[in-house]
Amino acid sequence: METTTQGTTQGSAQSSPQGSTEAAAPSATAERRPVTRKRRLFPPMTLKLGVGLSIAGLIVLFGLIGPLVVGDPSTVRDIGLTGPGHGFLLGTTQTGQDIFAQLAYATRGSLIIGVVVGAITLLLSSFFGLVGAFVGGWVDEAFSLLTNIMLVIPGLPLVIVISSYVPNKSIWLVAAVLAITSWAGSARVLRGFTLSVRSRDYVLAARIGGEKRWRILLVEILPNLIPLLASQVVFAVIFAILGEAGLSFLGLGASGSFTWGTMLYFAQNGLSLRLGAWWWFAPPGLLIALFGAALSLINFSIDEIINPKLRSQTRAERNRWGMSREQRQAAAEVTV
C-alpha cells in the first residue's frame, strides 16, 4: 500500500527526492498539535468574527475611555440645536448639551446594563438549567416548572409594570428586571444539553471512579457547555441592550442616567426628527444597530463551533469546494 502510493507520486513528479517527504512528515505533525489545542478554546478567526470583535471592541473602548475625556453631558448652553462641527463634534441638543459627551456616557450606561444582565442571566440560567437537570428527580421538576412559568410570562409587559411601579429607578434596577425576565429561554436550552451530557459514558465513568457530584458537574459537564454558555451570554447582552433602549424610549427606563435609549427618548421629545436634527438621534441609533450586529456576528462564529454543520455553508465556501477553471479544463481534456 505504502509503496504503491509512493510509486505513483514519484511517477508523476519524478524529481521529488524521497528524503524531503520524510522530513516534512514529523514537522507537519509538530505544527499541527498546538493549533488543535488553541482551536478548542477559541473559535477560528474568520472574517465574521474579526469584524464583529473589532466593532464591539471599538464601542466598548469608547464606553470605557469616552466619559473620562469629554466634558459634562448635562451642561446647558444657549446654543441649542447646532449641527456637528461648531466646536462640538456631534453638535448639541435643543438645550445646548454636548451630544458627543452624552453619547460617551450613554455608551457606558448601555454597556453596564448589557454586562450586568448578561452576568445575572448566566448565573440564573445555568443554576436552573444545569443544576436541575443534573440533580434530577423532583428538583428538576420544580426547576423546569419555574422555568416554564418564567418563559410564558410575557417579558415586556412585566417589565413595564415593574418599572412603572417603582418611581425612582436606578440603572441596576432596570438591569435586574431585564435579567429576571430573560433567563428562562437559555435555562431550557442548557437543561436539554445537560440532560444529554449527563448520561454520557464519561460522566458515568467519573461517578464510578468516585468523583464528588459537584466536581462531576463543574469539571466533567460544564466545560462541554462553554460554547453554548458563551453564545447564550452574548444573546442575553444583545437582548438587554435592545430591551433597555425600548424601555427608555417609552420613558420607563432608568431615571437620571444616560443610555442609548434615554438619548433617543430625549431626541424624540425634543422633536429632533421634525426639526431635522439628525445628529441627535442618528448616533445612538447607529451605535445600537452596530453593537447588536457586532455581537450577532460573534455569536454566529460561536454557533459554528457548537454546530459544525453551519460552517462552510455560505455560497462562497461551497463554490470553493468545486474545481477551478483550470482543473475543469484539464478534466474535460482527459474525458474527451
Binding site: D201, I208, E220
Partner: peptide, 22 residues
C-alpha cells in the same frame, strides 16, 4: 467508597467514555 475503588468498569464505547474536553 472502598467498594467503588475495588470494582471498576471498562465501557463499551471508547468514543463516549472519554471526556472530549480533557
Amino acid at each position: 467508597a472502598a467498594y467503588r475503588k475495588a470494582v471498576q468498569m471498562v465501557f463499551q464505547d471508547p468514543f463516549g467514555s472519554l471526556n472530549p474536553y480533557h
